Simulated assay, not measured.
Amino acid sequence: MSEEKRIEIALITGAKYNRKFYKASDRILILPSEVESLIKDGVIRREDVPELDDDEDEQNVPLEEMKLPALKKYAKEHGIDLGEASKIKEVLAVILKAGEADAGGDPKVSNSTETITTDTV
């Protein structure tokens, strides 16, 4: 049986975790399976949870299939200014536009980018 890889995260409020008390802003190691429960309890924020995929796996995931935290990380690593973009479609559109501006483009961008829009209904 493989053991879940723990992730480090900062608490937004004081809490008891694994029979130990922690204060707000303490950084603790949690199991990925506990994330949703801790968010629901107001102990951590969703936006503070790092992407759970390994870096190796991320390199093989097309941009269109990435989750918002991974897209933001990608933009930061590639020096892409997201401006006011905060929703997944908006962030993806900014990244794809930046990729089009690059001479060679990005190999992680698939050919299906033409169908992506940022219009809201």
Rank of each mutant, 00 (worst) to 15 (best):
R6Q: 14
Q59R: 14
K67S: 09
P107S: 06
A15G: 02
Y22C: 02
K67N: 09
S25F: 11
K5T: 14
D54F: 01
K40G: 07
K20T: 08
N111E: 05
G104S: 14
H78R: 12
I44R: 03
E56F: 14
N60L: 14
T118A: 15
K5V: 14
G99A: 14
A101C: 00
Q59Y: 10
K23N: 15
K67W: 07
K108N: 14
S86A: 05
Y17G: 03
K67C: 05
I39E: 07
D106C: 08
A10M: 12
V121A: 13
V91R: 04
T113A: 12
R19T: 00
L68R: 03
D102Y: 13
E84N: 11
K97T: 00
K23F: 08
E56C: 04
N18M: 13
P32A: 14
L52C: 05
A85W: 05
K108H: 12
E51V: 08
V109F: 03
I12Q: 03
D55L: 10
L71C: 01
A10N: 15
K67M: 14
G42R: 02
Y74T: 00
D54Y: 06
E56G: 02
E114H: 11
E3G: 09
P50A: 02
P62S: 00
V43Q: 02
V43I: 11
L31Y: 08
A98R: 09
K87E: 10
T115D: 12
P107W: 04
G42P: 09
E36H: 12
G14C: 05
T113W: 13
L11V: 01
D55Y: 01
L29W: 11
V35P: 01
E114N: 09
I88W: 08
E36P: 00
K73Y: 04
V61P: 05
L29Q: 15
E84H: 09
G99Y: 05
K108D: 13
M66Q: 05
E36A: 10
E90D: 07
E114Q: 08
G105P: 01
A98K: 11
D48Q: 10
K40T: 02
E65K: 15
A15F: 11
S86C: 04
D106V: 06
I88H: 07
L71S: 01
D119N: 14
K16W: 00
Q59I: 02
E65L: 11
E114V: 07
P32K: 08
R27H: 10
E64A: 02
S25Y: 10
I28F: 09
D53L: 15
K108F: 00
K97Q: 05
E114K: 13
A10T: 00
K23C: 06
Y74R: 02
L68W: 05
E34F: 05
K23Y: 12
T117L: 11
E100A: 10
N111R: 12
